[in-house]
Design a protein around this nucleic acid. Sequence first.
DNA 1: ATGATGGCTGTAAACGATTACACAGCTTGA
DNA 2: TCAAGCTGTGTAATCGTTTACAGCCATCAT
Lengths: 345, 345
Amino acid sequence: MPATQKTPTIQDVARIAGVSTATVSRVLSAPDIVRARTRERVHDAIETIGFTPNIAAQSLRRRKVRTVLVALPNIGNSFFGPIVDAIERTCVERDYDVLIVNRRPESEDDSSLLTYFSSNRADGLLLFDGNAAQSNWTARVGNRELLFPTVNVCECIEGAGLPTVLSDNEGGVEIAIDHLVTKGHRRIGRVAGPVENVLNRQRGAGYSRALKRHGIEARGLWSVSGPFGFQTGREAADRFVELNDRPTAVFCDADEIAIGFISGLRSRGVSCPDDVSVIGFDDIPFAAQTSPPLTTIRQRHKELGRLSAELLMDMLDGRMKEVASHVVLPCELVERQTVRPISED
Amino acid sequence: MPATQKTPTIQDVARIAGVSTATVSRVLSAPDIVRARTRERVHDAIETIGFTPNIAAQSLRRRKVRTVLVALPNIGNSFFGPIVDAIERTCVERDYDVLIVNRRPESEDDSSLLTYFSSNRADGLLLFDGNAAQSNWTARVGNRELLFPTVNVCECIEGAGLPTVLSDNEGGVEIAIDHLVTKGHRRIGRVAGPVENVLNRQRGAGYSRALKRHGIEARGLWSVSGPFGFQTGREAADRFVELNDRPTAVFCDADEIAIGFISGLRSRGVSCPDDVSVIGFDDIPFAAQTSPPLTTIRQRHKELGRLSAELLMDMLDGRMKEVASHVVLPCELVERQTVRPISED
DNA sequence: ATGATGGCTGTAAACGATTACACAGCTTGA
DNA sequence: TCAAGCTGTGTAATCGTTTACAGCCATCAT
């Protein structure tokens, strides 16, 4: 039995191919500047000993790691699934790795993210968090200004001037409200996301504006908010059933909230859409599978993921001016069965 | 304006603290062997220039990267959310990074995973894929036998003898079938996962065994299979409604399938649980929110993630014999509202 | 013949950490 | 007074690449 062999290095390849390490390296990174015959010899050598470049050594020398850091508020939330999927696909296409971190609230500050850069673990950041470092993102470590390539996804740190890829939240909500109004609703409530969240502000603005446009007055009692998740919807349902003057339709800031809301309503004997219409936001995969299927506003998950990843990698590869781009994708109404027309009376 | 400063290295720290780089390194990795006073000076220096060790250099020297590779069949599938979440939490606790890859079927062979090791990108693998390299996992690259620390999660490569963490699939299905039988059902169908999948075999075995135990004969027409996902459920629903001799209950190999099935049924005017009882498998977060809430078999997602990650990191840190462990977690019935008792007639 | 040119390759110095080894100074015991 | 044994620290080699620089050879114009 052969002793545990060390994994082959570029030196081994060089020796076998009878060339210098420099040449091997060139074959790998700039094949066209080496003579065809030599190149072939090197390739053969690589093949026979099964050489793979050592990433650590490469990164050390190049001062790049070809890794993108994805910072999510909550991996578990199914909204992120398709987006992360798209990011991962886009990244591997360009030979980047994807490092994932959960930005749990407990974790003190944003400096934990910073260390991913100062320690050379990642070259760029895809940040799904608007409240985050609303402080000063381009942060300081010790006495140095450390700024690393970041693109905001979905949520935008206002005023930070970072490149951003997100949906037209305000417009999306307007589409939702318009739809409800078109169906005859004028008593429209809202179950919102967490108050401190940027999305809440943006969607809230859309909500207010649409209502105003239709000459409808917002009612405080009809709006509640909470974290993105089922629970918020269920709690909203509890509140709802105790209202003696109920809205006929409710807009939810997220599909998960909507689904929790409908589920909560149902367990208390209130039916959607018979007793109340509900419209969500996001169009997560489950939205089409609920009973009844959820009417909602679609965000373009795949594009959100793809565009943000590409933007970031472009920045990293120096393919673009560092001009901060700001792309906002349109939302779209997906009409299913949780909104029912109301007869004027 | 100060020119772009280079990020500080251990050398800078050494210079400022007036010690050698060796000492700085020791302060970082073996603090107790350096005199308290020196240690303090070093810490101060680190503080003032904001030094963070360069991971690439560390990895190169140590030949470890403190990174775990997580290979999922499909990030988008919500079943994985909570598991990956647990993995990530467990890993950061022990200062490991988490690298995620999607094992899409297109991607030729498993050797793509191998390169993560030969290139020193990851130290260990959390593999969610039983069919994978059923060939020979401890694979060969070039002429070398390359074996890297791997633990199978959820799905088990049979005969590979890898450390494994999974649920008692067979037992779980038996619990499901027993439940249905207890409720009076004896005409029990199944919507299975993909035929080539290990889970399919295991769950199929549980299904057959439970039926046999109850003296029930399985009927070919009542079993269909397909990929894990809604679509399989919907297609099963199409088949179902065309049956002129229908089962009264259906076991689905996954919640997503069950939800698609119910949704498909509903859109064709068949009600669950009025017309047919359905029981799922997994207890994904959505299961509790569907209308009606889904009766299902719970897998312990968090533990699956935590245990597998810990097992792997133990292996990596040399904390355990390389004896292949095989932990199987029990499943549990979660009774909700998609199973209705049937009256004997 | 000479010098210029250009294509291809080799030499060796980085990159930033870890660590075996050596050594200085101090204590201790004979 | 000296050998031995500790502590605590420094020196320098090493990990596996990349790349600036230099050099060699052939070709070609003069």
